[in-house]
Simulated assay, not measured.
Amino acid sequence: MGRSNETFSKKEKEKKRLKKQQNKKDKTEERKASSSKGKSLEDMMAYVDADGNITSTPPDLHNKRKEIALEDIQLGAAKQIAMPEDAVRKGVVTLFNEQKGFGFIRDEISRESIFVHVSDVTGIIRENDRVTYEPSRGQKGPAAIKVAKI
């Protein structure tokens, strides 16, 4: 009589493999049973109320609606205030580098930063000085000419 080809360790390995397969099947069936795939969109929806809390009831939007005129909606960048070229303006020197010979003036009305070169300054100016100037178009944007300390 011949001996069986299966040894004790082979039988044990086979049992472990079958047990793993069974556990895997059990887990997949459990996942399918508790799955939320069959839920409708309304069941899965969550809402945030005015206080920032998450709720399952949708907010009442009809009472909080505001009418907005189409003319009030702004598209694109904000409009810049056009500066008259020949008017004398006032501003404050925000930065001035004496070694390099240039700086910037913040306009009092438009709050726009305007370039100033030392050749356009009459007298001596420093940072935080109040000055008068005439706006003009420079190579890279607005520039100040005829700058004088107040």
Rank of each mutant, 00 (worst) to 15 (best):
residue 89 R to N: 09
residue 56 S to W: 02
residue 93 V to E: 00
residue 59 P to W: 06
residue 131 V to L: 02
residue 10 K to A: 13
residue 13 K to S: 09
residue 86 D to W: 03
residue 66 K to A: 13
residue 9 S to R: 07
residue 139 Q to D: 09
residue 76 G to R: 02
residue 109 I to N: 05
residue 6 E to A: 06
residue 148 A to G: 03
residue 37 K to D: 12
residue 137 R to S: 13
residue 114 I to G: 13
residue 105 I to L: 10
residue 42 E to I: 11
residue 45 M to Y: 00
residue 65 R to K: 11
residue 98 E to T: 13
residue 110 S to I: 12
residue 81 I to S: 05
residue 36 S to A: 10
residue 92 V to C: 11
residue 122 T to D: 13
residue 100 K to A: 04
residue 42 E to H: 09
residue 44 M to L: 15
residue 119 S to E: 10
residue 129 D to P: 00
residue 7 T to V: 15
residue 15 K to C: 09
residue 42 E to Q: 01
residue 130 R to W: 10
residue 48 V to D: 01
residue 98 E to L: 05
residue 138 G to Y: 13
residue 102 F to G: 08
residue 145 I to N: 10
residue 101 G to P: 02
residue 15 K to I: 04
residue 25 K to N: 15
residue 110 S to H: 06
residue 130 R to M: 13
residue 147 V to L: 03
residue 46 A to C: 07
residue 28 T to H: 05
residue 144 A to D: 06
residue 26 D to S: 05
residue 96 F to V: 02
residue 76 G to D: 00
residue 62 H to P: 07
residue 34 S to A: 14
residue 126 R to S: 07
residue 36 S to N: 15
residue 120 D to Y: 10
residue 100 K to P: 00
residue 46 A to T: 14
residue 17 R to P: 01
residue 42 E to K: 03
residue 148 A to Y: 05
residue 80 Q to M: 05
residue 116 V to F: 06
residue 126 R to E: 04
residue 31 R to D: 04
residue 98 E to M: 03
